[in-house]
Design a protein around this nucleic acid. Structure first.
Lengths: 229, 229
DNA sequence: CGAGGACTTGATCAATTTCAAGCGGAGTGG
DNA sequence: CCACTCCGCTTGAAATTGATCAAGTCCTCG
């Protein structure tokens, strides 16, 4: 096993985990690692040479911009996530690092060849794609009908789930990976509304704010209840 | 070629089009055709024996229900579309026919085996899944930030595109496949707002209503402009 | 120390929802 | 064949949520 893959924190969970050692090494030889600092862009909407990548550590956002230049965050990418629009000639969205992030990038053609050569990889990417679809539909469900309070409560609950390693319970404390503005973009709200509702959730006893970004989940049941799910 | 596939209107465009004739016949032997009338359900959220299917003709909706029982339409399925959550033990959403629909259904295990046996099928389903993801993100972008007017204009524009066979221009007339209530659900609005905004779009000269469901696109450029894209 | 950025808070405003009423067509049963 | 009712739709008025406009605080960094 090559050195990079041997120490890769997501070697068990990323799409390439389904490959044999030789297959993975062959793929790794075609790719290269890359580090992005907060705010740096992996690729922009419209790029035709957009790379594909597996996120090794950190966090990314995928976002679109409307005619007036307003950002809309469409998805967050967590470690082991795969980024890349395989069958489209150019990228539809921007991909930007939220925190310092380590990636394993591949040229599109290399990934396409790997899909053809290794059926298990196609299957793994299909699974990941369906999970992304489900996550996006959940976000859609949230933004379309719920009140500002419910949207925020649900997002916090999701973050708490993601921050916990055990799937059966949620973390009682975590640091928000997003600024207020990014939360607002994601939920289709304004910064001011996010700030106010965060205050209200705290008054209600559902959460406690610890500094600007820290969140304690004071009452998980109440939070879930407010989120309406 | 078996009789069903020989006359299948989507034999060129559905996922199974990538299979050889023998492969497709083998898959077809495992599946069966089914007709749903408007309002009939293919499967419900929570079903663990949810089938997979290719839509041959008609239209389906995929929808979720929140705690209070409000429907949220997450996606529409057009002919040649594939339905089914392959890697999840149970269905997350309801799938219901919007019009009389003809499907080609398969047991989950048959599709899973076909994916393993025919790499081209995995690739085709991956492509479809990514397209679904893109469509869902477009809807998300729409519902999160845009005004009621822009959402409705964009939806009408999309329907007009879907109703046209040529990809370069949009249909100038079509019948809405959805009731006002369904449009409202899809866009995160109320029935009343949809009704009012439809009236306003007509007054502005962007569209003309022909009966309850018929829509003429009077000014495609204006419509696109209002939709903000 | 000053400047800029992220956040909070308050007051006002506008878009959309909510509540309420009524229309018209389709299907039903007397 | 004619009420009668249900359902989808439209329209109006009032209520409310969240957006917008406007300060002002706190922190970090140069």
């Amino acid at each position: 096993m090559n050195q990079m893959c041997a120490t890769c924190p997501v070697k068990e969970s990323a799409a390439c985990a389904v490959l044999s050692e030789e297959e993975r090494d062959a793929l790794a030889a075609a790719g290269r690692t890359r580090v992005l600092k907060r705010g740096e862009m992996l690729f922009a909407a419209g790029d035709d040479e957009a790379a594909c990548a597996t996120l090794v550590s950190g966090a990314l956002k995928i976002s679109a911009f409307d005619a007036e230049g307003n950002e809309q965050i469409l998805s967050l990418v967590h470690p082991a996530g795969f980024i890349g629009e395989l069958f489209s000639p150019f990228a539809h969205h921007d991909v930007v690092a939220l925190t310092e992030s380590q990636l394993c990038t591949f040229a599109r053609k290399d990934i396409e060849r790997a899909i053809d050569d290794y059926p298990a990889l196609a299957r793994a990417l299909l699974k990941r794609s369906q999970e992304d679809l489900l996550a996006t539909r959940n976000l859609l469900e949230l933004t379309a009908h719920a009140t500002a309070e419910a949207r925020l409560a649900a997002l916090l609950h999701d973050f708490a789930s993601a921050a916990s390693d055990a799937s059966c319970h949620i973390a009682s404390h975590f640091e928000l990976p997003l600024t207020r503005g990014e939360i607002a973009n994601m939920l289709g709200l304004t910064i001011e509304t996010v700030s106010r509702k965060l205050g209200e959730l705290e008054e209600m006893g559902a959460i406690a704010r610890k500094g600007k970004r820290g969140i304690d989940i004071a009452d998980p049941a109440l939070l879930r209840d407010i989120s309406g799910r």
